[in-house]
Amino acid sequence: MAQASSQTLPASTPARSPYLVLFVSWLIPGGGHFLLGRRGRGALIFLAVLLSFALGLMMRGAMFQPKSGDLLTTLIQYGGFVADLASGLFYLLSVWLGYSQEDVAGHSHDYGAKFLVAAGLLNILAMVDAWEISAGKKD
């Protein structure tokens, strides 16, 4: 599939497996775009996701955990966890280094949790974009 789709790639796009591009995009925000030679766009994505994630950490935002409860709690916790995880290396490093915060009351912490989730969701958009470029669906 990757071979068939790479036949339609523009000459400026190095042939890369879309799965590799997707993985690198997840691990390092903007990394997939770098692999595909879109360095400017990759750098902008990296900086935007980093800024959002860093703001979330500095506001001591909570990271969601995959906890179960009633339907709404399960949706929020699992959805938030997936979104946090989508920040890739930023999430893994912050958890590993102990920056994962417990959920505490306060509007600033609440904004922080939203910035952490937003960083992951923005990276998902970037992952999809990199996948489509590597599959020859867009430039």
């Binding site: 994505i45 600033s108 910035f115 958009l125 970037a126």
Partner: peptide
């Protein structure tokens, strides 16, 4: 770090717009 609602919304709009544009 404490931001007002306006400051947080401004920064959120900035990072979101950059990625959406890209």
């Amino acid at each position: 770090m404490k931001l007002s609602h306006f400051e947080a919304a401004l920064l959120f709009a900035l990072v979101s717009s950059v990625v959406l544009g890209v």
